[in-house]
Design a protein around this nucleic acid. Structure first.
Lengths: 241, 241
DNA sequence: CGTTAGGTTGAAGAAGTTCAAAGAAAGTGG
DNA sequence: CCACTTTCTTTGAACTTCTTCAACCTAACG
């Protein structure tokens, strides 16, 4: 427990105090604020609250009233949805510098997804009311957020398209290639999540993921070094799947 | 051809002149601008160009440089993507009052999708440069667009989730229920697109759509009045699929 | 160090796609 | 407005892909 023994923990996790060091790192490390002047950042810092969560805690659930923007300072957060028929699907993984809150931000609304920490995580939060004030005062923030949203929208549509137009083989191969790019094109890398989570993210089952990776290994495209560690042996082969 | 005979038509379709009537209807009918003061709308109108397209024309293609916001004044536009393996998937259908341009709007970028008119269509366009100016000058516009984007993001993620967690039965049933809601809960309605397009939109094939609708009819949930006309006989039955 | 969660493998089955062929609707040009 | 062409829709049947279930194994965690 990271909690100070003087305080009890609420269901959302434990506050870790409001040092300006904490807040500054939120404001200055995140693309939507880090282009601002120092005095503007200082102003925003005053509106920020810092909260810590332990691994596995739920930050918000679908159905919760949403009234804050969450910025990840440390740790990782799994964002997932439940379909009408109750199946879980991982939408994205947030790492430090990323933010979430979604619809949250722009009107009185209700979360459509769940946010759960994958490891011990610190987040900074700004209430919708405060954020709206900053958006009107510093229009460039809106443009940054619009930029981010448009990227995310593109990614979501692309993912939806790949779910229905590509076979699982292809989706897995594309994911591996993306991992490579994210690890500065190194041929060897670590999967950013468990294979169970990966199966949910790619819209399939753990069994199928396991089988496809084995297939790729048998075909000589990759080598599974360890549980989550993968080495690409035949880049072109993967690209052609 | 709607073109004035004095002008030749470019590959994008035919301009139909710049009467302020045309422009006003774009500005005042669309949610991102219609909250503004009259003098502000007048200013925006001056930056708008009006263009008409015939049915089946391509407004933009994936790969095109994108530098404008498009607002639909009349007609309908099909937005679709091509997957890596070349299959088409319809992302959404725009009707009058809707807008597109996407990534387009907030940075020098390239279209990821195709926009094709489904009928004779008039659009209003604003260049990115002009729009950025208005966003900085009237921050409330940004908030409107952010609101719209967050809704669209939610819809895209929801769609992606349903593609991988729901069977085709369920997706078709959900679509029919949505059509009902959009036609003010009337039990009888017209499909908003061909069954071929619908299959693409729902991530399946025309054959499967045809079969599922027949199944629903056999089960007594619906009645297919005409090619695109459907009557819901058992609402609860549909909801429980 | 034991318990729990994640991962693998096989076999059977369900769901949807594909291909082919025929019928219906819509668009085209005289 | 008709006849023609093209595109859309439907139906059958074979086939592919993926999921599901069950059993077992392995890694992570307190």
């Amino acid at each position: 427990m990271q909690c100070n023994s003087m305080h009890s923990c609420n269901h959302h996790g434990c506050g870790i105090g409001h040092t300006s060091e904490n807040h500054r790192s939120c404001v200055s490390s995140v693309s939507i604020f880090n282009h601002l002047e120092d005095y503007q950042m200082d102003e925003i810092m005053k509106a920020i609250k810092s909260v810590s969560y332990k691994k596995g805690e739920i930050i918000y659930s679908a159905g919760d009233k949403s009234d804050s923007l969450y910025i990840v300072r440390r740790g990782r957060i799994r964002i997932y949805r439940l379909s009408e028929s109750g199946k879980e699907q991982i939408v994205r993984i947030l790492a430090s510098g990323d933010f979430t809150g979604e619809l949250a931000l722009f009107r009185e609304s209700i979360h459509e997804s769940f946010a759960e920490t994958m490891e011990d995580t610190d987040v900074c939060t700004i209430t919708r009311a405060d954020l709206q004030g900053f958006l009107l005062k510093y229009p460039s923030i809106s443009i940054k957020i619009l930029n981010e949203f448009s990227k995310r929208l593109d990614a979501a549509e692309k993912q939806a398209t790949s779910f229905v137009t590509e076979k699982v083989d292809k989706r897995v191969a594309m994911f591996l290639l993306e991992c490579m790019d994210n690890s500065s094109k190194s041929m060897e890398f670590e999967l950013p999540m468990s294979k169970k989570d990966l199966s949910s993210y790619l819209g399939t089952t753990p069994e199928t993921i396991s089988r496809k990776l084995t297939e790729f290994e048998d075909a000589g495209y990759i080598r599974q070094i360890a549980n989550r560690r993968i080495k690409v042996l035949d880049l072109e082969g993967l690209q052609l799947i």
